[in-house]
Design a protein around this nucleic acid. Structure first.
Lengths: 217, 217, 217, 217
DNA sequence: AATGAATGAGGGTTCATTCAT
DNA sequence: TATGAATGAACCCTCATTCAT
């Protein structure tokens, strides 16, 4: 038995730490890094502001933990997926759908990543775990693409990173930039129906991108 | 004659205003909205902090002006483009290349948009000009797509907004998320060579997406 | 006319700055560096706490200004003294009395110096003016000692710095350590009478130290 | 047997207490009272911060213990000295040398005393032991001075406290104010050679001060 | 048109200390 | 004996903004 029982002081400590982390995800997500207030994080975590420094050291280090956390959560969700390698095209559809839906249900993933990129990745660079945590993304893709190539339905001349980027771009941008897009495309963009259409469009698009022979080019 | 002479007091005022705007673009772009300091903007504009309030009213309103400014700049650049409607496929390639290169050369466009989206579009909504300013994007696309459809090389069952989103996504995400992507894909992503490869890949992809018949789906 | 009139905004600014400095001397003197509170300084100066940073930049830099100030004040007082070189022994008595009385009437001089020395001179080292400001001390002494030597009443084999240190030590320590001394010597040490006795003792002592022939050694 | 064996729990407690005291001397000495951090003291004592409160009650009471400790240490060292009453002048030289060297080797004695005096002796007043602990100082001096007077080499009209103060002043000030003195006298003041010169100068000076007949006054 | 002086609210962070085991 | 968790007060400092000229 490594973990102590629920009533333990140590367990309570874990709960406090987790509460802060959860609150931090929410607040950083909504307010950005500079806009986030440690006081707000503390009050949402129902703990003393001091505890943030007790457990995480500083706002900066807290953000690093937040980054690691959202990647870990994404990995967990991804690891639960099973893709049917016997049908690579369907597997790709499933992967696109998974990615799209994850972004849809986890807007904080988008906003935290956006925040970190605006800060030019300073926190990501500080994290030792992050590279390991985020490494799986391409890993899940690889067997699918290779299966498709083996079956002769996917192109051989393709960079796996391009496949990853293609999917990520098409899923991410729609969500990350919805607010400015709504301003001059269509407010309807935010509606479930429009989102469904977009998912269908990009699923098809990704497969076109992977298809062995591409006409009309 | 609309503009007064260079030596005029009014001209000096224009110059001050422009200097503040330029500095604001730079600072907001690097630090985000909450992270940007009015003092820094003033010092970069080589003017008194008070002038920001004199010309723009508040930090908030200054940001609105910045938003309008970067869209206006983008429109100006776009309006200078000429796309050959006789060859719709080449026109699409040119449009993708233009978009990609604009993002590449104007990172502030990406970061300001990112900032505004993290703020959930509150400034965009305040601007009266913005809708007008940003409306052109799809406008330039429409004739090209229609020309391709008329020539029978582009699909008929396509939503023009999807075409726009597809291009924007593929050009934007690579640049906006370069920092976190570098963390687990490849540092090389930032190299000119990799960027060129990506441009080729997405040009081809967009055409595949528009192609009348898509095999292997 | 270099200085503007009393009513000017600039004059008011000077007054604010001076008020802060004066309050800082008092508070640093009583509480030490770490113990001093910027809020207390501001409230004693009847100004907004922010003004400290406006005029001095930081607590640290404020302390440097305080150091420079107390030295400048001491110099001013010293410069007003006239020592009769025709009677070097009386001149020495006068100098000792002046030093002693200055310390007595300006306890902040003692405490600020004590504070700075506990901090190992970090602020003194930062000041560009300080060396210049404090240089006079030995300067006033030199002509007196030389006059005494010329008259044959003072020793020739003497280091001027030793004379300075001797006087300073004997005047300073009694005041700087009065609190702990009272604890085991005599509470009466703080009485004017005892102080007068000490002044007489050290005046005599300094002259013995300077005397050409010292018997009984 | 008063002390328990080394392995005992009580012995361990003594060691913890001593470690904290030692660390406290160091930290208070370097940072002053307000500047000293209980955390730093604990970490230097390699114990939990809580232990400070367990053994000493509060930061304040810890400082009182520190005061008592350094006086006790000084007394211990002083008690080890043997002064030759047959030669009072040499005895005085020895006493001056002992005092000077003690200050030189125990800078914390100077800084702690300085700190306490800046705090206006609030802790000293709280201590019950302190008066007893510090009373010896004059006690060692008395027999020497009386021996000198009996031999007719020392003045009869002298206040023993003045002798004490004279010696303490001349030994203390040089060390306590070295940092600011270096700023405008000479950096060389800190060199062993200069210190040796000063010791010679003040030894001679003290004897001049005690000498029965003083010419040139 | 432009600016130096001033401000109040609140920023992240640190402090000595206590609780509970 | 010893310690990890928790706290509230306050610390230095910075912010966007306004006043007064």
């Amino acid at each position: 038995m490594e973990k102590a029982k629920t009533g333990t002081r140590a367990a309570q400590a874990d709960r406090s730490r987790a509460a802060i982390l959860k609150a931090a995800v929410k607040v950083f997500s909504r307010q950005g890094y500079a806009g986030a207030r440690t006081e707000q994080i503390a009050s949402q975590a129902k703990c003393n502001e001091r505890m943030i420094y007790y457990y995480f050291g500083s706002k900066d280090e807290l953000f690093v933990s937040v980054l690691e956390h959202i990647y870990a959560q994404f990995n967990l969700a991804e690891a639960r997926q099973r893709f049917d390698l016997a049908n690579p095209q369907q597997a790709i559809r499933d992967l696109v759908a998974f990615t799209w839906n994850y972004y849809l249900k986890h807007p904080e993933f988008i906003t935290i990543l956006g925040t970190e990129n605006l800060l030019q990745g300073i926190h990501a660079r500080k994290s030792r775990n992050l590279r390991a945590l985020s490494g799986t993304a391409v890993g899940m893709l690889q067997p699918i693409v290779e299966a498709g190539q083996a079956q002769g339905v996917f192109r051989d001349d393709i960079d796996i990173r391009h496949v990853y980027l293609m999917i990520a771009s098409l899923c991410y941008f729609y969500n990350s930039n919805l607010h400015t897009l709504s301003c001059f495309l269509d407010d309807a963009l935010a509606s479930p129906k429009e989102k469904q259409h977009w998912l269908e469009f990009i699923s098809d698009l990704v497969l076109r991108g992977l298809a062995r022979v591409a006409e009309g080019t």
